[in-house]
Design a protein around this nucleic acid. Structure first.
Lengths: 143, 143
DNA sequence: GTATATGCAAAGCATTTGCATTAAA
DNA sequence: TTTAATGCAAATGCTTTGCATATAC
């Protein structure tokens, strides 16, 4: 397998190994969501999947996205008011960098976050599960 | 003014000083949103405002929330899928602590966040405006 | 008096649901 | 063959819009 194939098969590769009933529709959705820095809405997934499989329905896209989210293969991120974005980079812990003008979303590594912790008064009795961080600002092209 | 009044009039107090046309409806909305650790949905604001002013309409609540958000008096926070929560603590920089079971939302001080910064490779050319942080987990009563 | 806020109902967008049909294993 | 996925259309939840009426200043 060469570098390019590897990049493009993250999600699809994981799914092949699982015992998940693999239909043409699910493959189309998984393909659309395979790769780095992907953050698509359900509607975007639908239109891209239709390029490859025109008969795919909206309901199936929503079903599949929900299924993949439940399996931990996708992360739902709510960056803006409006539709949820689906991020296939659910395995690797990361945060999001977002341009407030053009809406571009990028995954970023946690960095300098070792000291990101609950203030002492909140820590007591609270079982921390997850920390969501969104960095908002202007990207180079928009600034 | 005693301590209790002070606590309860944050938002209302700020509005009195501004040249904002103060109607019974707007006062009702502002009252409902005055106090610490308030994170209400539009629907919750409506039902609480109705207790004080039964003739207030849903549209007016939405209008007023939008207006106050535009003026920087409220912050819209999207913690869960579903409705936006309105946070009147827009003046003081803070983050959110959320119970993933009961849904309780609390404001928390940024703490140990001095080192919360963009990774060097992302920093270049990006003009950072804001960092949103949500701590998710189980609160004491739910754990 | 005049500009602006209100309230109603209809429209809009994102998503979910029910159910009959179809296809994978 | 059997279980589960698909697709359609209707329903839901949240929010916005258009417009006639009412009200603060």
């Amino acid at each position: 397998m060469n570098g390019r194939e590897e990049e493009y098969s993250y999600l699809l590769e994981r799914l092949r190994r699982s015992n998940w009933r693999l239909t043409a529709q699910r493959r189309a959705v998984a393909e659309v969501l395979s790769g780095p820095d992907i953050h698509l809405t359900a509607e975007e997934v639908l239109s891209r999947a239709k390029e490859v499989l025109p008969e795919i329905s909206r309901a199936t896209v929503y079903n599949t996205l929900k299924e993949l989210t439940d399996r931990g293969e996708l992360e739902e991120v709510q960056i803006f008011p409006g539709p949820v974005h689906y991020d296939p980079n659910a395995v690797v812990r990361h945060h999001h960098l977002v341009c407030s003008r053009c809406g571009k979303i990028m995954d970023i590594q946690p960095y300098g976050l070792d000291s990101l912790e609950l203030p002492p008064e909140a820590r007591d009795g609270f079982r921390l599960e997850q920390i969501d961080v969104i960095f908002r600002g202007m990207c180079e092209e928009c600034a």
